[in-house]
Structures are given as structure tokens and as C-alpha cells.
């Protein structure tokens, strides 16, 4: 397939660009495009669920986080130039060249070894899943069947990881306790037009997010992807109106409650007498909804933590420049 080859080449080029470009912002943009190409590429491999997840979470949200996080910390262009001329830098360039040769050699050996030895001895798991997932779980999408039923034990930790990651971020970025952060962040919206148009957009995004969540067991998508789409509503709203519009502490509490709900709900799977065929489908939908809400809360908190941090950094900077 020539299309896939074009995509793959573009991915390699973008990956090289994102590590070789000097300015971090531009590197991050390349990384975002790289993820987007990946997301489209997964479609060729019949992985629509994954494609959606990579597009929403890996490409859009990660890039936004990167950009917000490094804003204000990156070097000025003049600084970069002066660093590049120093003799130390030349030594570093020599080091890069040396390691480049080493990596090329070892990489070549490893890759040729891989293609020389790789073999298949069957796919027992695949065989079981595709034959029985509809009768086992009631889902029409095998991916949902796996992560909400067969391997729900993994999904619990996935949700936990998101919870812990958010706790860590909020903790490291020093959310001021007991303070109402809304006032500190609130500034004037950048543009009236953006504010108006995004106002028109919310209902559609919300609707789309809910659709993805509720139909996760039938069509590509599910709680994680839909939750991320819902979270984008908060983010767009922030960019349009420059205020959070929701109390972050309530959001944090909600996230933890949803997480407990997910654990409790997944425990129902252990009671076979509960899980008749009607309840199974209901269970899947309910799980997806809970996960969706939890992910939505979590990602929104994540984003606002970084935004808040950024305004704080700019504040102190502005003050020191004035003073």
C-alpha cells in the first residue's frame, strides 16, 4: 500500500524533526502532528477505537499540555544561538555524531535479527475473543468487551493511574489550598468572535462526546475517548471566556467518587447471578458512562492545573519586570 508507506515516511521525518529542532515549542508541534499521523495510520490497521483515542488524547490534549507547560520556560532565540557557538557545544555535536553511528549499527543488527527470527505460533487469545465476545459480554465492539469485561482488572488500574497522575500534577503545581482559583485566573477573553462561536459549538461537542460514551459498546469509542471529548468542552470554554466556570475542588471530589463507583461496579462482574444477558449490556453502558465522566473530570483538572501554573509564572515574571 503506497499510502501507508507515505504515512510511515512522514512519521519518521516528523519524529526526527521533533527531536532535532532547537526550539521546544516547534518540537512539540511536530510531535503533535506525528501523533495525528499515527492516529490516521491506525485506521489502515482496522483500529478505529485506538485511532480515536490517539487523536483526542495523544495528539490534541498532550500537545496542549506540552505547550501550556513549557510556555515561559523556553530559551530565547539569541540564547540558543550563543549556546550553539560555544566550543562545548561543538564537543556535544561530536558526541551526537558518535552516538548516531553506534545507534545505526546496533539498530541495524537488531532490526535485521528481528526480521530474521520473528515467527508466529498462533493466536489463542484472538481465537477466543472474536468467537465468543458477543455472547459472553453482550457488547458489539470487541475492544469494549475486552476492556470493560474480560480485562476490566487492567482498566481499573488505568483509571487509577489517571487519578494518581492528576493528584501528582495538582500536588506538584501547588494548587493553593482553600483559595478560590477562579478569580486569579479570570482575565478578559481574547476575542469576542471566538467567544461567540465556541458558545455555539458546546452543545454539539457535548452531544458528540455523550454519543461516543453511550455507544461505546456498539461502535468505536467508549468512556476514555468520549470523556476526553467532554473535557475539551471545558478547555474550549476556557479559551473563549478565560474563566473556569466550575469549582476545581468539586471536580476533584467528583473524580474520586466516580473512581469508587467504577470499582464498585466492576465488582458486580464477580457475581454471576447478577450478570444475566440484559444486565450485561446495561452494565457496559453504565461502566462507560462512569469512566467517561471520570476521565472528563480528570483531564479538565489536569489542564486547569497547568493553566493556573502558567498564569502564576507570568504574574511573577511581570511583577519582577515591573519592579
Amino acid at each position: 500500500m503506497p499510502v501507508t508507506i507515505v504515512f510511515l515516511l512522514a512519521m519518521v521525518v516528523l519524529a526526527v524533526a521533533s527531536i532535532q529542532v532547537r526550539k521546544a515549542e516547534i518540537a512539540v508541534i511536530y510531535l503533535g502532528i506525528f501523533s495525528l499521523f499515527n492516529a490516521i495510520f491506525y485506521l489502515f490497521y482496522s483500529a478505529p477505537d485506538l485511532s480515536l483515542a490517539e487523536a483526542v488524547i495523544g495528539s490534541a490534549l498532550a500537545t496542549a499540555l506540552f505547550l501550556v507547560a513549557i510556555k515561559g520556560y523556553t530559551l530565547r532565540r539569541t540564547q540558543i544561538k550563543s549556546e550553539y557557538r560555544s566550543p562545548k557545544m561543538r564537543l556535544a555535536l561530536f558526541g551526537e555524531l558518535f552516538w548516531g553511528v553506534v545507534f545505526l549499527t546496533i539498530g541495524f543488527i537488531v532490526i535485521s535479527f528481528y526480521f530474521g527470527t520473528v515467527q508466529d505460533v498462533g493466536k489463542p487469545a484472538w481465537y477466543h475473543y472474536v468467537r465468543s465476545f458477543i455472547s459472553d459480554t453482550g457488547a458489539r465492539n470487541a475492544v469494549t468487551a475486552i476492556y470493560l469485561n474480560y480485562r476490566v482488572f487492567d482498566t481499573l488500574f488505568e483509571a487509577l493511574l489517571l487519578l494518581v497522575g492528576i493528584l501528582a500534577t495538582a500536588y506538584f503545581l501547588e494548587w493553593p489550598e482553600g483559595k478560590e482559583p477562579e478569580e486569579e485566573i479570570a482575565t478578559k477573553p481574547d476575542s469576542e468572535i471566538v467567544a461567540r462561536i465556541s458558545g455555539l459549538l458546546y452543545p454539539f461537542i457535548l452531544l458528540y462526546g455523550f454519543y461516543i460514551i453511550v455507544n461505546g459498546h456498539l461502535t468505536p469509542g467508549g468512556g476514555f475517548q468520549g470523556g476526553a471529548i467532554l473535557a475539551s468542552v471545558f478547555i474550549i470554554r476556557y479559551f473563549a471566556q478565560r474563566r473556569l466556570g466550575i469549582n476545581i475542588f468539586i471536580l476533584q471530589r467528583l473524580e474520586k467518587s466516580f473512581f469508587l463507583g467504577i470499582i464498585a461496579l466492576s465488582m458486580l462482574l464477580l457475581l454471576p447471578e447478577f450478570m444475566n444477558s440484559d444486565f450485561k449490556v446495561f452494565h457496559l453502558v453504565l461502566m462507560n458512562i462512569l469512566i467517561g465522566f471520570k476521565v472528563c473530570c480528570g483531564l479538565a483538572i489536569l489542564f486547569f492545573c497547568f493553566i493556573f501554573q502558567q498564569t502564576k509564572v507570568e504574574d511573577t515574571k511581570g511583577r519582577s519586570e515591573r519592579g
Binding site: P124, H128, Y129, N149, Y150, L269, L270, P272
Partner: peptide
């Protein structure tokens, strides 16, 4: 977990 076979469950 949840009584599935080891091939498909955890």
C-alpha cells in the same frame, strides 16, 4: 478475575 479462562482474562 470474573471467572474467565486464563487465555482471555487476567
Amino acid at each position: 478475575f470474573a471467572g474467565w479462562d486464563r487465555i482471555i482474562g487476567i
